[in-house]
Design a protein around this nucleic acid. Structure first.
Length: 416
DNA sequence: TCTGGGGTCCTAGGACCC
DNA sequence: TCTGGGGTCCTAGGACCC
C-alpha cells in the first residue's frame, strides 16, 4: 500500500486530501510512522523524530496513530488478496506476497493480474497500491518499490540480473546501514557490483551472508511463500514521557504492559514459556534479560513474578527512557495438550464468573458451564470487563494511583 | 528538542549431556 | 598431568524490517 496509514486518514477525511499528513510524531518523544506523499516532499520520512518532522514541515497535519483502524483496513485488503490466490503471505499490515502461479487462464498475463488486484483494492477500500511482478519474492518486492505510488513494475522472466544491477546495495533485503557501510568499504555500491564480485572472496569476507547476497544479486531466490506464519512472540513496550530510575518506578511502569501482553495471549488462546524484559537507558543503550519457565502462563500473576526476578538482574539506577516486556516460546493451542498432563492452576482460578446480564445478555448464558468456569481466572474476568465497559473501567490500583497523581484532568489522554 | 512499537532472524559463548 | 567431539539448550546482543 502507498503511505498506508496516511492514505487511510486522507481517505477517511476528505479535508486532508492533498495536504501534508503525518501520522505519529505528535507526542514529545514520538516518531513519524507514515508521512503522506505531500509531506514527503518536505523531507519527512518514516521513523523520523517528531520534532524534526515539525521543523521540516511546520504546516504538517500531525495525527495520532489509529492502529486498530489500520488493522481492520489491512484485514479487508488481505481478503481481497485471498480472492485472487489461496497462497498469500502477509509481510506486514500493508504488504503481502501473492503466488499467482497457474492463474493465467483466469486473470491473463502477470501485468493484467496486477492491474486487477489493484483495481479490486481500490473498489473495496479506495486506497492505492503498488505492485511488483516477478518470478520470485525478492525481485517482486524490489519491483514493487520502483514505481510508487500507484504503479506496477514487472521484471520479465530471465531479466532479473540486469533488472537489479543498477540498484544500490541498500535495496537488498537484509542490507541495512551496517552491512551497507561494510559493502561500500569493499567497493561494492550497486547490486551489479555484488553480482560480479568474486564468489570465493565474497564468502570469505562476509560468510554465509555474502553467499546469500550473491544469490539475491543474480535475482535468484528460491524461498517459497509461507501463508501460515504464526507469531513467535508477543510484546509491549513504552517510551516514557520522562526518564525514570529505580526498581519501584520501573515495576510500576511495566505492570500495565504485563497485563496487556497477557490479555493478548489469552485472546489468541496461547500461552508462553518465556519472559523477556527490555530496558533502554537515556544513553539509548538497550539491555534485555529473559528466562524460560517449566509451566506456560497467560496470566499476569505468574508473568509478573518472573518480571520481578529479571528486574533484579539488571541495572535500574541509570536513567531509563523505555521499558518493555515480551512473552516468547509460545505454546499455541493449549487445548491440544494431553489431558493427563498436569496444568498449574491459578491462585484465583475459582473466582466467580461475572454475574450474567439480566434478560437480553449479549453473552450466551451457556458460556459459563462448570467445565469452563475453571478458566475464569482474574485475567479473563478483566478481559470481559474491558470488552464490555472499555479499558478505563478497570485497572490496577498501582496504575490508577499514578494516573491520578500525574494527570488529574485528562484520563486516558496520556500519549504513553 | 534528540531518536516508536511491533516484530524476525542470526550469532556466539557457556552450561550441560553423552 | 594438560584436558575430545558432537549435540542441544539457554541467554544476551545486534542487525534488520515495516
Amino acid at each position: 500500500m502507498d503511505a498506508f496509514y496516511a492514505s487511510v486518514e486522507q481517505r477517511d477525511n476528505p479535508d486532508l486530501q492533498g495536504k501534508p499528513v503525518i501520522v505519529g510524531g505528535s507526542s514529545r518523544r514520538g516518531v513519524v510512522t507514515t508521512a503522506s506523499y505531500e509531506a514527503r516532499r518536505f523531507g519527512v520520512k518514516s521513523a523520523m523524530p517528531g520534532f524534526k518532522a515539525r521543523q521540516l514541515c511546520p504546516q504538517g497535519i500531525f495525527l495520532p496513530v489509529r492502529m486498530a483502524h489500520y488493522v481492520a483496513v489491512s484485514q479487508s485488503i488481505m481478503e481481497v488478496f485471498r480472492q485472487f490466490s489461496p497462497v498469500v503471505e502477509p509481510l506486514s499490515l500493508d504488504e503481502a506476497f501473492l503466488d499467482m502461479t497457474g492463474c493465467e487462464r483466469i486473470y491473463g498475463s502477470p501485468m493484467q493480474m496486477a492491474e486487477q488486484v489493484r483495481r479490486a483494492i481500490w473498489d473495496r477500500e479506495h486506497l492505492t497500491a503498488s505492485v511488483g511482478v516477478a518470478a520470485n519474492k525478492f525481485v517482486a518486492k524490489i519491483a514493487s518499490d520502483l514505481n510508487k505510488p500507484n504503479g506496477i513494475t514487472e521484471c520479465p522472466l530471465g531479466q532479473e540480473k540486469a533488472f537489479l544491477a543498477p540498484l544500490v546495495v541498500e535495496k537488498l533485503w537484509g542490507v541495512g546501514p551496517k552491512s551497507a557501510a561494510r559493502l561500500h568499504a569493499e567497493g561494492l555500491h550497486t547490486i551489479g557490483d555484488i553480482a560480479n564480485a568474486d564468489e570465493v572472496w565474497l564468502a570469505e569476507e562476509l560468510g554465509s551472508f555474502g553467499v546469500h547476497l550473491r544469490e539475491l544479486s543474480h535475482g535468484r531466490d528460491t524461498r517459497v511463500l509461507k501463508p501460515d506464519r504464526t507469531r513467535k512472540s508477543i510484546g509491549s513496550e513504552r517510551t516514557l514521557m520522562e526518564n525514570i530510575q529505580g526498581y519501584e518506578a520501573v515495576r510500576e511502569r511495566i505492570l500495565p504492559l504485563v497485563d496487556e501482553v497477557c490479555s493478548t495471549l489469552r485472546r489468541k488462546g496461547s500461552r508462553a514459556f518465556g519472559v523477556r524484559i527490555k530496558i533502554r537507558y537515556a544513553s539509548f543503550d538497550r539491555h534485555t534479560r529473559d528466562e524460560r519457565q517449566k509451566q506456560p502462563f497467560d496470566e499476569a500473576g505468574p508473568m509478573l513474578e518472573v518480571v520481578e526476578r529479571l528486574l533484579r538482574r539488571i541495572d535500574l539506577e541509570q536513567e531509563i527512557r523505555l521499558v518493555g516486556v515480551t512473552a516468547f516460546d509460545l505454546d499455541d493451542d493449549p487445548e491440544e495438550e494431553a489431558v493427563d498432563e498436569p496444568r498449574q492452576m491459578g491462585l484465583f482460578a475459582s473466582i466467580a464468573p461475572v454475574a450474567p446480564q439480566p434478560a437480553s445478555s449479549s453473552a450466551p448464558s451457556g458460556a459459563e458451564t462448570p467445565a469452563s468456569a475453571g478458566a475464569s481466572t482474574i485475567g479473563s474476568v478483566m478481559d470481559r470487563i474491558h470488552d464490555r465497559f472499555g479499558k478505563e473501567a478497570l485497572a490496577r490500583g498501582a496504575v490508577v494511583g499514578r494516573r491520578r497523581a500525574h494527570s488529574p484532568s485528562s484520563a486516558g489522554n496520556d500519549s504513553e
